Lab assay of single mutants.
Amino acid sequence: MPVRRGHVAPQNTFLDTIIRKFEGQSRKFIIANARVENCAVIYCNDGFCELCGYSRAEVMQRPCTCDFLHGPRTQRRAAAQIAQALLGAEERKVEIAFYRKDGSCFLCLVDVVPVKNEDGAVIMFILNFEVVMEKDMVGSPAHDTNHRGPPTSWLAPGRAKTFRLKLPALLALTARESSVRSGGAGGAGAPGAVVVDVDLTPAAPSSESLALDEVTAMDNHVAGLGPAEERRALVGPGSPPRSAPGQLPSPRAHSLNPDASGSSCSLARTRSRESCASVRRASSADDIEAMRAGVLPPPPRHASTGAMHPLRSGLLNSTSDSDLVRYRTISKIPQITLNFVDLKGDPFLASPTSDREIIAPKIKERTHNVTEKVTQVLSLGADVLPEYKLQAPRIHRWTILHYSPFKAVWDWLILLLVIYTAVFTPYSAAFLLKETEEGPPATECGYACQPLAVVDLIVDIMFIVDILINFRTTYVNANEEVVSHPGRIAVHYFKGWFLIDMVAAIPFDLLI
């Protein structure tokens, strides 16, 4: 008679799926529990143990900040960024110097990925580790590398530091407007667009060049630039800015003055950032001319202004700041037409079709709590990747769950009947059967004279019903998954307890 339990259901295979997918890609990662103190490590794979030199037993239950890997060259700011990422709910990448158990130093890129439950609360953290440099290539500990984003994938490793954006290309926007319009339909740009040429040739750093990471940081200074100062900065030398009595002219307006920039070969870094931020506020060169004239017309309804409409929906549905990093990277690809469009465009503009998908598509409701890094690593669709929660398995109709209350009560009843059979069957065979043979035949009273025979008949009927119930009862397979398919249940029961239950259900007393 089957006594099969499996009270692990309803099970959740999400954690096993993450481990299996990460292991298949030869990654070095740990999984931490966000619900406990210090976000203790609950799993670390073999790749991480080989990377740091510690065994799994030495890593388990330690804080996922990996303070046991810190050393003299470990930056405090990087460690603080990892700790801050564990307090938030967004994906974050941090470069930090770690030390192995043998004392060797290596520069590592740590990717902190939160995993949320159905309520939107962070319950786990996945920390992925990628070695960037070994100890002989690690720089000085005073050099802070965590304020910069990861290198873009479309640049060669040897040319990542030679990417320079020439400031004269930004200063000569109005001069290039006529050349853009003359391109017409034969050019790649839309009317009114501004073409910015980027020099990728390796050259020595000069005062006129600005690194790509500095251009990325310009967006942080746009908020500090007032509207009046932006307007004066875009007017140009024809209309000098008016300053109040006793007030000095704005240095932001002076930063885009061609006369002032041409007199000296070098520009201050602050002026460069502010000038680029001011130019980015204009949607095209037409807006710059309109600002000089004193009238700013409404933005025209053409394809170039609607190019950012799908980007707005993608940004609203993005799951991490990696989408913004990807957008900034692609927006700086050289030799393309940049349409400086305000994100607050007309909502009635139709979304044009684009061959290049900048932001990841909208994630469906079932995966809105899973970050983009987890979705990318697992390579699963929205119909396959579940949320991290207890999910009731989908069972067929008329199927009994093996952990249901009805099955528990039924098993206790069958257990009592088995005990009765084990006690009274030998007793009936030894004593009652002998008395029946010696006594007179009682054929007239039937079952009324033999109450134990009636009980034995009921017990046999219950055993037959138990066999039928076992054909529709779920079970737990070797992978700790609840199986509810009727065919698989029948095959599993035939290979197991079916023969024993059938022999126990045969009414031998009635056959004798």
Results as ranks from 00 to 15, higher is better:
Pro347Asp: 04
Arg301Ile: 09
Glu50Arg: 13
Ala172Gln: 07
His302Trp: 15
Val279Tyr: 13
Phe14Val: 12
Leu338Ala: 11
Val222Thr: 06
Phe48Glu: 01
Val131Ala: 15
Glu58Leu: 02
Thr216Ala: 10
Leu225Arg: 15
Val36Leu: 15
Glu274Ile: 05
Ala204Lys: 15
Arg280Cys: 08
Ile31Val: 10
Gly53Gln: 06
Leu385Asn: 05
Leu248Val: 12
Ile126His: 01
Val138His: 13
Leu380Met: 07
Gly238Phe: 04
Glu37Ala: 14
Gly103Arg: 13
Asn117Cys: 15
Glu37Asp: 08
Phe340Arg: 14
Tyr99Asp: 01
Leu324His: 14
Ser179Val: 06
Leu256Trp: 12
His309Met: 05
Ser272His: 11
Ser278Trp: 08
Lys362His: 14
Tyr43Arg: 01
Met291Phe: 11
Pro10Tyr: 08
Leu316Asn: 11
Thr353Tyr: 05
Glu274Val: 11
Pro300Cys: 07
Ala160Arg: 09
Ala303Gly: 07
Val180Asp: 11
Ser379Leu: 07
Leu200Thr: 15
Asn117Val: 09
Leu385Phe: 14
Leu127Phe: 03
Gly314Phe: 08
Cys276Tyr: 03
Gln81Ile: 09
Asp355Gln: 05
Val94Glu: 05
Ala228Val: 12
Thr371Met: 07
Ala268Tyr: 12
Met124Gln: 03
Arg164Met: 06
Phe14Ile: 06
Leu324Cys: 13
Pro334Trp: 01
Cys49Gln: 08
Asp355Arg: 07
Arg328Lys: 15
Ser239Val: 07
Thr319Phe: 05
Pro361Glu: 07
Arg56Ser: 03
Arg77Tyr: 12
Lys373Asn: 01
Glu230Lys: 05
Phe29Lys: 01
Ile359Trp: 01
Leu324Met: 14
Arg20Gly: 10
Ile363Cys: 07
Val194Thr: 06
Val194His: 05
Ile123Pro: 13
Asn33Gln: 07
Ser153Pro: 13
Pro299Asn: 08
Leu87Arg: 14
Ala156Gln: 15
Arg312His: 07
Met124Lys: 04
Phe106Trp: 04
Ile19Pro: 01
Cys105Gln: 15
Asp67Ala: 08
Ala307Gly: 12
Lys364Cys: 04
Arg356Leu: 09
Phe348Trp: 06
Ser207His: 15
Pro299His: 07
Val279His: 12
Ser153Gln: 06
Tyr43Pro: 01
Gln247Phe: 15
Pro297Tyr: 07
Thr371Trp: 06
Ala78His: 13
Ala253Glu: 15
Ser266His: 10
Leu51Cys: 03
Val112Met: 06
His309Tyr: 14
Glu230Thr: 07
His147Asn: 14
Ile363Glu: 12
Gly262Ser: 15
Gly24Pro: 03
Ala89Trp: 13
Pro245Gly: 11
Thr367Arg: 12
Gly246Tyr: 14
Thr375Gly: 08
Met308Asn: 05
Ile363Pro: 13
Ala40Cys: 11
Pro157Trp: 12
Val198Trp: 03
Lys362Pro: 06
Pro150Asp: 09
Asp259Phe: 15
Leu248His: 06
Thr371Cys: 09
Ala211Phe: 13
Pro2Met: 04
Phe22Lys: 05
Gly53Val: 01
Ala193Leu: 01
Leu349Gln: 05
Asn317Ala: 10
Ala121Thr: 09
Val94Leu: 01
Thr353Ile: 14
Thr201Arg: 09
Leu248Ser: 11
Cys265Ala: 15
Ala193Asp: 12
Pro310Cys: 05
Arg77Thr: 13
Asn128Thr: 08
Pro63Leu: 01
Ala253Arg: 11
Ile42Met: 07
Glu357Pro: 12
Leu248Arg: 11
Val113Arg: 10
Leu155Glu: 09
Gly24Lys: 12
Glu95His: 06
Val196His: 01
Ala211Cys: 07
Leu349Pro: 09
Pro10Cys: 10
Leu210Tyr: 03
Tyr54Gln: 01
Arg62His: 14
Thr329Phe: 03
Leu109His: 05
Ala277Ile: 15
Thr337Ser: 14
Leu155His: 11
Leu315Thr: 12
Gly120Glu: 15
His221Pro: 10
Arg252Ala: 05
Gly246Thr: 14
Ala223Val: 08
Gly186Gln: 15
Gln61Ala: 11
Lys161Asp: 11
Thr152Ala: 05
Ser264Lys: 08
Cys39Asn: 15
Ala303Phe: 14
Ala268Gln: 15
Leu171Ala: 14
Gly238Asp: 15
Ile330Ala: 11
Pro300Val: 15
Cys52Tyr: 05
Ser243Thr: 13
Ser55Arg: 06
Phe98Lys: 01
Ala282Thr: 05
His368Gly: 05
Gly226Phe: 08
Ala175Arg: 15
Ala78Gly: 09
Ser320Asp: 15
Leu107Gly: 06
Arg20Asn: 08
Ser272Glu: 14
Lys161Trp: 10
Ile330Tyr: 14
Ser239Phe: 09
Gly226Asp: 05
Ile288Ala: 14
Asn317His: 09
Val196Asn: 11
Ser263Lys: 15
Asp355Leu: 10
Ser209Arg: 04
Glu130Trp: 06
Ser283Leu: 14
Gly306Ile: 12
Ile96Lys: 01
Cys44Val: 15
Gly47Arg: 08
Glu58Pro: 01
Arg77His: 13
His221Met: 15
Thr216Arg: 12
Ala175Phe: 01
Gly224Cys: 05
Asp259Gly: 07
Ser266Asp: 09
Gln84Ser: 13
Ala9Thr: 08
Pro310Glu: 04
Pro352Thr: 03
Ile330Cys: 14
Arg92Tyr: 05
Gly238Glu: 11
Val195Gln: 01
Ala175Cys: 09
Cys265Trp: 15
Asp144Gly: 14
Ser320Tyr: 11
Thr319Ser: 09
Arg281Cys: 10
Glu118Gly: 10
Arg328Val: 05
Asp136Val: 06
Ala79Gln: 10
Ala169Ile: 01
Pro141Met: 14
His254Gly: 08
Arg271Gln: 13
Lys21Leu: 06
Gly71His: 01
Phe68Leu: 01
Lys21His: 11
Asp46Trp: 04
Lys373Pro: 03
Pro150His: 09
Leu248Asp: 13
His70Tyr: 10
Pro297Gln: 08
Asp119Trp: 05
Gly120Asp: 14
Val341Lys: 15
Asp16Asn: 14
Lys93Cys: 13
Ser182Ile: 06
Ala350Met: 13
Asp321Met: 15
Ala307Thr: 12
Leu378Gly: 01
Ile82Ser: 01
Ser318Asp: 11
Val8Tyr: 13
Asp144Thr: 15
Met137His: 15
Ile30Asp: 01
Asp136Trp: 14
Val3Gly: 12
Leu311Cys: 05
Glu95Lys: 12
Ser243Pro: 06
Thr319Trp: 03
Val132Met: 07
Ile123Arg: 11
Ala268Pro: 09
Arg176Cys: 05
